[in-house]
């Protein structure tokens, strides 16, 4: 029975991926890609990886979908008459190459699955080590205790991607302001949704040390708040990045680096986190930075300012 559910999800993934690739309309492709991401989240949940399910739903499907929709809208705005020409390359080699690639992945995967496992594998060693750290969630534990440099650089990559995206549009004229949300229900709806979303984000952050969750999932949920505020005109893209935006943008990198260096000064290895409170401190700073970076990527702007409402 369980296998049947997994098979259904797997079949859904394959069909959605094929539809995303082969569909005619670009817009339909984006929507199908978001559905693909949500189905991926289901698959992660079935595979016993709730952290990945949360990340996939919030970041993989949500943020990527929003960014793709914004890019699509800009393409349409630039040339409204022909937004997407359904052109496809013809290539006789495409199918054999794809089949070979799929075969390669299958061989690697099946080889790894059927391989004999030694009892002293790294994962088990990590699990026993993590029991002493007070971090009940092994994923957060691994990310912050054993792969802390990777996690630090991951935040740096996100920041670098944002800066690179801004550099590409360096000489762009001011992007058109989105339509003002004048509908009477928008304000009331935001007044309910925004606090609830912030609550969910903070819960994901705090729960991240014990249960599924963490800074990245929380940051993506928090970013949804910013996206809502931009769409309703409460926040407007700005051309200049003030200190109020710039400082939170690098806060995650800054706090993580400072705590890591402080460990070095105190004689511990670089980036060794002395206690649970530093984990919360770093995760909070990272959440703020991640959320702001994602919102700015969505807005396609260097800064944000209050809407005149």
């Amino acid at each position: 029975m369980n296998l049947a559910i997994d098979a259904l999800i797997g079949l859904g993934l394959v069909i959605l991926a094929w539809q995303t690739i082969s569909g005619r309309s670009l817009f339909r492709g984006i929507v199908l890609f978001v559905v693909f991401g949500l189905t991926m989240a289901l698959a992660w949940a079935r595979m016993g990886a709730p952290d990945l399910a949360l990340a996939e739903a919030a970041i993989g499907a949500g943020v990527t979908g929003a960014l793709m929709l914004v890019a699509y809208r800009r393409l349409v705005q630039l040339h409204p008459e022909e937004p997407a020409q359904p052109n496809r390359r013809r290539s006789r080699l495409a199918l054999p190459i794809a089949a070979l690639a799929a075969g390669l992945v299958a061989v690697i995967g099946l080889g790894a699955v059927s391989a004999e496992r030694e009892p002293g594998m790294a994962g088990l060693a990590v699990m026993s080590e993590l029991a002493d750290t007070g971090l009940g969630n092994p994923i957060t534990g691994v990310l912050l205790k054993f792969r802390n440099l990777d996690t630090l650089l991951e935040v740096a990559v996100l920041l670098a991607a944002f800066l690179a995206a801004r550099t590409v549009f360096a000489d762009e004229e001011k992007s058109p302001t989105p339509p003002r949300g004048d509908l009477p229900l928008v304000g009331a709806l935001l007044a309910i949704i925004i606090p609830l979303t912030i609550l969910v984000a903070v819960h994901l952050l705090l729960a991240g040390s014990r249960e599924p969750g963490g800074a990245f999932q929380a940051g993506a949920v928090l970013a949804a708040c910013g996206v809502l505020l931009i769409l309703s005109g409460r926040l407007q893209p700005a051309t200049r990045m003030g200190l109020a935006v710039g400082l939170p943008l690098v806060l995650g990198l800054l706090v993580f680096s400072l705590v890591g260096l402080a460990a070095l000064v105190m004689g511990a290895p670089l980036l060794a986190l002395p206690g649970l409170w530093t984990v919360y401190l770093i995760e909070t700073a990272m959440m703020i930075s991640i959320a702001l970076t994602l919102v700015l990527l969505f807005a396609g702007a260097s800064g944000l300012r209050r809407g005149d409402s």
Partner: peptide, 10 residues
């Protein structure tokens, strides 16, 4: 693993 292989091929 089979699903991953199919997705990669697609």
């Amino acid at each position: 693993v089979i699903v991953a292989a199919l997705l990669f091929g697609i």
